[in-house]
Design a protein around this nucleic acid. Structure first.
Lengths: 148, 148
DNA sequence: GTGAGTGCAAAGGTTTTGCACCGGT
DNA sequence: ACCGGTGCAAAACCTTTGCACTCAC
C-alpha cells in the first residue's frame, strides 16, 4: 500500500493499488492537477503544463499514457468538443452522465445537472439495448453572449 | 444559375448559388456521395474514395475544403464519435437535432428519433440561454452485442 | 532486484496550408 | 478574362510507439 500521500483521495489511491498500478511521481502530479481543476475540461497539453510545476521532467507521452490508464479506470472521463483534440475531467461518482452546455460565441462550457433522459433510456432498453453511458452536448448562447 | 444538374436537390443548388459558391465537379461529386449515403456518417477518407468514382482526380485537400464549406452552410453536419477523426452526414431539415446510439462492442451507430429534450431546453431558456442545437450520444450495447 | 513506468525522439494519422494552375461564371 | 476553386506536396497538429533508463514496490 502507498504511504505518505494526502493530496489525492484515498479512494483513488486504492483503485490504483487494486488495479496493480504504481503511484509514480508523474501519476501523482497528474492526479493533483486534475483534482485542482475539478469541473474543468483539460487537454493533454494543459495537463502537461500544470503538471510540470510538480514534476518538472514530465513528458507529453507520459501524460497521454497516464490519462489513458486513469480513463480506463473511470477515474477520469475523456471527451471532445469537436476541436480536434480530447479533453479530460475528473469523474464525479455522483454524476455519471455528462451534460454539457457549450456557448458558440465564447466557448464557455458549463454542466447541466438534471438527468432528463431516463425515459429515453427506458425506451432504448425496451428495444433490447443495454445503456452504458451517454453524453449530451447542448449548443446554446449563454446569457452574456446572446446576439442582439 | 446552374444548369444540367439532376442528381442533387434543387434546394442545395440554390443555397450554393446564393452563397456565391460555384458548383464545381468536386463539389458535385461530394454532394452526390453524401446523398447516396444519406443517414451514414462518413469520414473525409471515405468521401474521397467514393468521390473518386465520379471525379477521379479529386484530392483529399479538396474534400476537406468542400466538407468544411458545406458544413458552414448547414448542408452537412460534422461530428465525431471519439475516434480521433471527424464524420460528416447530410443534414436533414426534418431532424435538426442529433441523437446517436453507439454500440461499444460493434461500433454500429443508429439514430434515435424521439426528441425528449424539450423540457431540458426549456429549463435552459428559463435561465437565459438561447439554445441553438444539441447532440446526444448514448453508448449502449445493441441487442446483438449484449454481453452475457 | 525486477519489471512497470518514464522521457525522449521518431513515427503515425488526420487535417490544414502554400502555391501554381484550372475551369465556372 | 477573372478569381474562386483545385491538386499536389509540405507542414501543422494531436496522439502513439520504440527503446534504453529509472524508480516504486
Amino acid at each position: 500500500m502507498f504511504k505518505g500521500v494526502f493530496k489525492i483521495d484515498k479512494k483513488i489511491i486504492e483503485s490504483l493499488d487494486k488495479a496493480g498500478y504504481r503511484l509514480t511521481q508523474p501519476r501523482k502530479a497528474i492526479l493533483e492537477v486534475m483534482k485542482e481543476n475539478k469541473g474543468q475540461h483539460l487537454t493533454a497539453e494543459e495537463v502537461l503544463l500544470a503538471a510540470r510545476d510538480k514534476a518538472p521532467n514530465i513528458g507529453i507521452a507520459t501524460v497521454y499514457r497516464c490519462l489513458e490508464s486513469l480513463t480506463s479506470m473511470d477515474i477520469l472521463y475523456k471527451t471532445t468538443f469537436d476541436e480536434g483534440k480530447y479533453r479530460y475531467e475528473l469523474s464525479d461518482e455522483e454524476i455519471h452522465r455528462h451534460h454539457h452546455v457549450i456557448c458558440p460565441a465564447c466557448g464557455k462550457i458549463s454542466e447541466v445537472e438534471e438527468d432528463l433522459l431516463c425515459s429515453l433510456e427506458q425506451h432504448l432498453e425496451d428495444q433490447g439495448y443495454e445503456v452504458v453511458d451517454h453524453h449530451l452536448k447542448v449548443y446554446a448562447y449563454c446569457p452574456e453572449c446572446i446576439p442582439k
